[in-house]
Design a protein around this nucleic acid. Structure first.
Lengths: 154, 154
DNA sequence: TTGCTCCTCACGTCACGTGAGGTGGC
DNA sequence: TTGCTCCTCACGTCACGTGAGGTGGC
């Protein structure tokens, strides 16, 4: 009777539609070790839980926003994956030093991601400014042509 | 005949090194009609001028920062290409209405680029905020673990 | 039972990477 | 002349796209 919503699992097609990718992409990520389904039912069906959903979203965000290769994604998220794998045992009373070790490993990777984001932000900002000024130039030029429409210059 | 500003031309290897891509990329872009060398010497050598340099830089920036496919690049820069092609004849006394037509065609494309940039900026900003808060959480958690252990700081 | 979704090959595609083998220009 | 860079194939690779042919679950 206790059908907790957080226990909901997704079949590969449901996950794909929810995240906005094809099933091929998800299977390919599994092929290269980027994302394994939490459960593989006896009937060979892949089943994904909520942690898989966030993991996949994270991967896609890094891929799309930072333009990283899948190899780079693996390197940048390995600690996260380890952390997720250990999260279930978190209440299994690991020692504080063990916990600290996991957290300590995750920090530099998040810092690296943040640096990449900031670099991109600067480049995008520069690009945006250039486009804005180019647009203004074009609009001014257009006005000039339309004003002198009646006159022919050589 | 008016003297050109900069008549310096680049061979494909020089262009590649200056922009930071391989010669294969440049040849591939020519293959699919994205970037043609201004001059093709009798010896079959490709020669690029300053306008080709900026064109290529522009393409790469759109590709890298916005993650567009080469088909999308072609669509977003076709007007620019036409404008560049006509720039040499600009002083050939085209009528004002002709000039206005060229400029008028370029404006919506620049506007579309700007919109894409702004959308990316928002998504990157959201991502950056999330990473920052995640980082803070991790650091706070780390401190908790290290408290009570009388550890020295680094 | 009937669709629908799932499964595993496996070839196709996009955007190049990487030689092979040869010619030309400084 | 000697290197170096250029040329054109052409096969390889990465990250999937797209069926083919078959099985399983709601």
């Amino acid at each position: 009777m206790t059908t907790r919503r957080r226990d909901r699992t997704y079949r590969i097609g449901e996950l794909a539609e929810r995240i906005g990718v094809t099933t091929r992409t998800i299977r390919y990520y599994e092929e290269i070790g980027l994302l394994a389904p939490s459960i593989r039912s006896k009937g060979e069906q892949r089943l994904y839980d909520e942690s898989d959903v966030t993991r996949l979203q994270e991967l896609l965000r890094l891929r799309d926003l930072l333009g990283l290769s899948l190899d780079e994604l693996a390197a940048l998220t390995e600690a996260e994956q380890a952390r997720a794998a250990l999260r279930d045992q978190w209440h299994d009373n690991p020692s504080d030093s063990e916990k600290a070790k996991i957290v300590l490993a995750a920090i530099p990777l998040i810092e690296r991601q943040l640096k990449l984001v900031q670099t991109r932000q600067r480049r995008l900002s520069d690009f945006g400014k250039e486009l804005s000024s180019r647009l203004e130039t074009l609009r001014r030029r257009l006005e000039e042509f339309q004003e002198g429409r009646e006159q022919s210059r050589s």
